[in-house]
Nucleic acid binder design. Sequence first.
RNA 1: GGGGCCGUCGUUCAGCUUGGUUAGGACGCCAGAUUGUCAAUCUGGAGGUCGCGGGUUCAAAUCCCGUCGGCCCCGCCA
Length: 585
Amino acid sequence: MMRTHHCGALTREQAGQVVTLMGWVHGRRDHGGILFVDLRDRYGITQLVFDVEKDAALHEQANTLRNEFVIAAQGVVRIRPEESVNPLLSTGEIEIEVTSLDILNPAKTTPFLIEDHVQATEALRLKYRYLDLRRPKMQRLLRLRHEVVYHIRRLLHGQGFLEIETPILTKSTPEGARDYLVPSRVNPGEFFALPQSPQLFKQILMVGGVDRYFQIARCFRDEDLRLDRQPEFTQIDLEMSFVQPNDIMGLVENILRTVCRDVAGIELANPFPRFTYRQALSRYGTDKPDRRFGLELHDLTPMARHVTFKVFRDAVEAGGIVMGLNVKGGAAIARSQIDRLIEVAKGFGAKGLAWVKIAEGWTLESAIAKYLDPDLLRRTWPEAEPGDLLLFVADGPSVVYEVLGRLRLHLGEELQLIKKDRWEPLWITDFPLLEYDPTEQRYVALHHPFTAPYPEDIPLLDTNPAGVRAQAYDLVINGFELGGGSIRIHQRETQQKVFDLLGMTKEAAREQFGFLLEALEYGAPPHGGIALGLDRLVMLLGGAESIRDVIPFPKTQKAQCLMTEAPSPVSREQLKELHIRLDLD
RNA sequence: GGGGCCGUCGUUCAGCUUGGUUAGGACGCCAGAUUGUCAAUCUGGAGGUCGCGGGUUCAAAUCCCGUCGGCCCCGCCA
């Protein structure tokens, strides 16, 4: 018996036809003489009818059906009585009067119901992922992910990109994230690493004259998990030769705008707003701002020099800054709630959180009111007005940004300021190339060591490395870092200089990246690219809670797969073959 | 490595603050009834090592300690 239609296909057009459907028993409604069965597959649900008066034996057979049985049913498409039409189903105008039923496979009672509105715990869903994936919501996300990938392939192909695979078994490098290691049986004591990204290979492809490369690339990082971080994840990775940052940002914007419109009906701004790293920090306290609400940071450092409040003055004199948030209408917030905010701020690393309520007539209600001059405050902060609550943090710049940036998000969520239906993409540019790491006592690359500085900043590499700006750009949507890229260094000399600044010896550089340095000497074209987090993109487009919902078989926070129970111990023989001895303690 | 929330019939929750009843509701499951339902309905029934281990107590789902697991966050993630 062959399936003639899927379960979302039939309408009144097919009335009278003899059809065969196959699928899962989604539900069953027994009215005694008449029995309804909802048959489900990926495409929809079709109602089957068994009437005792038409065929008593068949009706009896149908009585043995249970949820999630896999069946084949042959019958006649029949238009439903008008009052029985179900407008919620695409097939709601018809039903199948079954003439023959085949049970292809029975099913045990499932641990949870295959329905969107029944919420099993995530752990249970992950253990029985094959059941979870049957739920319409998960089917929708699987399809969405496919559509995104399909459209991106189509668009990049149309722009002349070649999809090229790069090795999964590759070379470990100490820079960056922890590597997943794979032992080499034929090279005792040596290991491959799984790629954190195809970064070096795509640059080599540019040297290889490929001009435009892309890959839907699996990447691996052995770091702790978050709701938007899995040990293996997928990047939309691309690289182009002979380009400037604008070429890549423009191309990525166009592709994203098209994809979001075509697969989700979402219109993104044109062009995406751009902020420098400095601007983002000073306005939002973070380099991945959520612009679906205001509540921007306000700099009060100049005013702080002129107030008698010791906390402010001391902070400024120590080279720190004073910044604030204006909670519009926040004067109505209770003291107890402000006390909780203070604790939240301390949890973010603040020593304290000063606050001022502006009452009618610009009188200040605050523990520090006596230190503040209302007129001065009014001039410094023109947007502040009676009824507002002002919050202040005084500390070193990084602490102030961190605390107010996170407090801004906290308040955005708590006061429901975030416009959840908005889409706010943006670029962050002009990142510092390097950052001094006090614990390692050396400079580290903010992006990665192959990022090119602005040509005019190259002299600063010798005099003021921390002041060198990178030709790097991050893409942020709704507060999620969706991707990042840069123009790469294509000259050996500059690359060597950056390795030097990172404290890498010539020998270490040669050992780890010798092939790249060498490649740069054989006519490497100027090039650059970007990598976008596919999982995060699909999560946002699908309104999913975490990237686990858009990865068919994700890991738990302990990096385990609850279905396969990976990772798992291996036999002594396997280890011996790989020349590995365990040292567990 | 650290902080927080959670773990009770198959599932999802209540009960825990203040220790003491036969551990309860909803959904699911089983049986019966039911000829137009579509979260069908009605009646009845079964179903629990209260995550695990230890402690306190006459008595522990409840209090204490440890441990395992899930989630969120910090660190980490070039």
